[in-house]
Design a protein around this nucleic acid. Structure first.
Lengths: 117, 117
DNA sequence: CATATAAATAACTATATGGTTTTGTAACTG
DNA sequence: CAGTTACAAAACCATATAGTTATTTATATG
């Protein structure tokens, strides 16, 4: 898989709110089993397993083994690559916020208002 | 469209190499007509128009009017929001970059100065 | 007015995506 | 060994996506 295809897979994986929520959960709680991940969602276990397969193909998670459980682990490398792509555009989006600290302020407002996705 | 849906649309728009190339072209050359955008691709004009519709729905481009031409303009706001989402994971991906460029340096300085994290 | 250019729209096709329910399997437990 | 838990795999369905060719619309020009 070349760089472009990896970015395809990463952005595609990030384009679903369930998958972003899974990543957020892993960032908060560390490794989590599939059942524990599925619990908050109004969705069947196989649906979550499918989302995990998408995340795994993008390299955003890896799987371990603990008895019957397959703990899911966050892998940040693709997030770094996606960020790297976006950083090339910073001169365009920086202007939207004026200065960097304005960006941070804006982010905090967005998160406070949205309750973090 | 709420924050989550906007992120969906943004990441989904960014998940295609043709659309990323279009954004890169607009960042380099400024506003560009549809025909000029289509030229480098082995793809029909309607296919490019469809990609532009995806980008426009995500708010990543806007359209002007110049005689028959509909110049395409880069809109960076959604890139800022996507970057904002990724920045929440920086502690995971920071290690991946050796020497970071000025954005991240500045981010770290700001945070250090503010006594955060 | 007739024609050319730029782009959008329509109609169609093939494949991908996101969900379901059902079934299968690997590992523990009594 | 029988049952349970945790998960994956299969089969199916509806909708979305990415492309095509053909047609239409808007604007400009001879």
């Amino acid at each position: 898989m070349d760089d472009s295809a990896r970015l395809d897979a990463t952005f595609q994986a990030l384009s679903d709110p369930t998958r972003r929520a899974i990543l957020a959960r892993l960032a908060r709680d560390g490794d989590v089993s599939v059942m524990e991940l599925a619990e908050p969602f109004a969705m069947s276990q196989p649906a979550i397993s499918k989302h995990l397969k998408v995340l795994e193909k993008a390299g955003l998670v890896s799987r371990g083994r603990d008895a019957q459980k397959r703990p899911v682990h966050l892998e940040a490398q693709p997030l770094a690559e996606a960020t790297g792509w976006l950083i090339d555009y910073r001169k365009y989006w920086q202007a939207q916020f004026g200065r960097l600290d304005d960006l941070l302020d804006e982010l905090q407002k967005l998160e406070a208002a949205a309750g973090k996705n």
